[in-house]
């Protein structure tokens, strides 16, 4: 509870309002099973990496041996999967930096810049999720914290690959290296990790997520890989910073007006709410302080 109150208080020091234009938005509910939520988040990130041409799916039938460094071998939603996603995203950021330097077309430059930002977000959020799993490891499997992962050792890797995957047959025929075969579901670490296939995922016990961990995962899932059009950050000291993206500048005037109107309304509503929460906390703290000290004086 102490952690919870401390995180809550620190969250109240900063208010961030984001406006996003989202295509094909469905009114689909967020999965209530947190393991499923993490798997969906990882799937979303993997799809983006594949779309950007930075990574290749292990299920791609056109896969060749030359694609080995690009293959996403973890297809789940646990620490190992997010680690692979984070590393791929970092590679993508480096590739895009090079491409941005060589690009002269302003429209193409805009696209590359926004892709680089999305990759940065994927990388940051993936490391945040890895951090959550590290905490679970610390509490639930402390002996594994300092050990290296067996599946990362080339000699032992064969025991962790999915032998039912069609790439394994191609590996046996000598067409593909071992690096192209996806990993199997990792049941050994199910009590603190989430690198499980759908069958084991639904049967596994819940992980002990804290509210601030959930807030981070929900936010990552909701924002996904959408580009933020307008962002306003209000600090408790009084600093207000607004970010306007080129996507907003390039919009037709009437759409710009609607977007700005939405953003402004969100700012005014959230500052009102923020004010209420803040004054409640101040009130409670103030009242308790008052009661303790007036009683002492008596």
């Amino acid at each position: 509870m102490n952690d919870f109150i401390r995180n809550l208080a620190s969250d109240l020091l900063r208010l961030e309002i984001n406006t996003i234009i989202k295509q094909n938005m469905s009114a689909e509910k967020i999965p209530s099973n947190k393991r499923v939520l993490l798997r969906k988040l990882a799937d979303m990130y993997r799809e983006t990496l594949i779309d950007y041409g930075i990574a290749k799916s292990a299920d791609d039938p056109q896969l060749t041996a030359a694609d080995a460094p690009k293959v996403l071998r973890w297809q789940f939603g646990g620490e190992f999967s997010f680690k692979e996603i984070a590393l791929m995203a970092s590679k993508g950021i480096e590739q895009l930096e090079q491409a941005i330097k060589n690009e002269t077309d302003p429209l193409r430059l805009n696209v590359l810049n926004s892709r680089q930002k999305i990759l940065q977000r994927i990388c940051n959020q993936s490391y945040n999720v890895i951090g959550i799993f590290k905490l679970f490891r610390r509490d639930l499997a402390p002996d594994t914290l300092m050990q290296s992962n067996e599946h990362e050792e080339p000699a032992k890797q064969i025991h962790y690959v999915d032998k039912e995957h069609f790439n394994y047959l191609r590996y046996q025929r000598g067409e593909l290296p071992l690096e192209c075969i996806p990993f199997r579901s990792h049941q050994e670490t199910a009590h603190w990790n989430n690198d499980l296939d759908w069958m084991h995922l639904n049967a596994a016990d819940d992980l002990p997520f804290l509210p601030d961990m959930l807030a981070m995962i929900y936010k990552a899932y909701q924002i996904g890989t959408e580009q933020i059009v307008l962002q306003t950050v209000i600090q408790v000291e009084g600093d207000i910073t607004s970010y306007i993206t080129p996507q907003y500048i390039n919009m037709p005037d009437n759409i710009k007006e609607v977007v700005m109107n939405v953003h402004n309304r969100a700012i005014s509503l959230s500052t009102q709410f923020w004010n209420t929460l803040f004054s409640t906390v101040m009130n409670l703290a103030g009242k308790s302080f008052n009661q303790i000290f007036t009683r002492n004086r008596k």
Binding site: L13, I21, M25
Partner: peptide, 23 residues
């Protein structure tokens, strides 16, 4: 069909505006 969606947390608010370009 279009959906306006707002996610409210303690420190942030995210407003999703439907984009007809998807349809």
């Amino acid at each position: 069909s279009f959906t306006f969606k707002t996610v409210i947390s303690f420190g942030d608010i995210v407003v999703f505006i439907p984009d007809p370009a998807g349809y």
